[in-house]
Amino acid sequence: MKMGSALLALAVAFACCPAARAGHQYYDSDVSVYLPGRGASGILNAARRSPDPNAQIGCTIKYGVPTSTYPYPGLTQAYVTCVARNSQGRVDCISVDPVVIDIARAIVPTSFVAFSADESGQCVRLSVSNESAYLP
């Protein structure tokens, strides 16, 4: 009978109290676009849930002839394009650098992505962060 009482007490305790939550969570739903510095940052899933209907951020790895003239027009190659936009504007960049392509491969739906471009549209920085704080 003691086992039954203990189980009943445990059931009552769980029923009365909400589940505890622990761990830092980052809820920023905005894609930030820095037009003067040609930079952008944001979380992929958060952009999708953003109240801004234009919010978008991410990178695409491609193989073929880039549509831009960078860096070798007409040459078939692996390259990455990154884009971010919100209601204030759009920033994008392109790179054939194998290191940048490898970093882009780390992007998952819960990644925090930050990148910047130079004057010619080349990616000069790409950062991908996969942390528990960015999970939905």
Rank of each mutant, 00 (worst) to 15 (best):
Val33Gln: 00
Arg90Ile: 10
Gln77Ser: 14
Arg49Tyr: 10
Tyr79Asn: 07
Thr76Lys: 12
Ser32Phe: 11
Pro18His: 00
Tyr34Asn: 14
Pro18Thr: 00
Arg85Ile: 03
Gly39Asp: 02
Ser87Met: 08
Asn54Ser: 11
Cys82Ile: 09
Val80Met: 09
Leu75Phe: 15
His24Cys: 09
Asn54Cys: 12
Lys62Pro: 08
Ile43Ser: 12
Val80His: 11
Val83Pro: 07
Tyr27Pro: 15
Arg48Ile: 09
Tyr34Phe: 12
Pro36Met: 00
Pro66Gln: 01
Gly42Val: 01
Val31Tyr: 00
Tyr27Trp: 14
Pro51Tyr: 03
Gln56Asp: 14
Gly39Phe: 01
Val80Ile: 11
Gln77Gly: 11
Pro73Asp: 01
Pro51Ala: 03
Cys17Ser: 10
Cys59Phe: 09
Asp30Tyr: 10
Pro66His: 02
Ile57Asp: 03
Thr67Lys: 06
Gly89Val: 02
Arg90Val: 08
Thr60Cys: 03
Leu10Gln: 05
Ile43Val: 15
Arg90Met: 12
Gln77Thr: 15
Gln56Phe: 13
Ser41Leu: 10
Val65Phe: 06
Val91Tyr: 04
Arg21Phe: 14
Val80Trp: 14
Asp30Glu: 10
Leu10Glu: 05
Ala47Glu: 09
Cys17Tyr: 12
Val65Leu: 02
Pro53Thr: 04
Ala20Glu: 15
His24Asp: 13
Pro66Glu: 01
Val83Thr: 14
Arg38Glu: 00
Asn45Lys: 05
Ser87Cys: 05
Ala15Ser: 11
Val12Asn: 01
Gln88Lys: 13
Gly74Met: 03
Arg21Asp: 15
Asp30Trp: 06
Asp28Phe: 05
Gly23Asp: 05
Leu44Gln: 12
Pro53Phe: 01
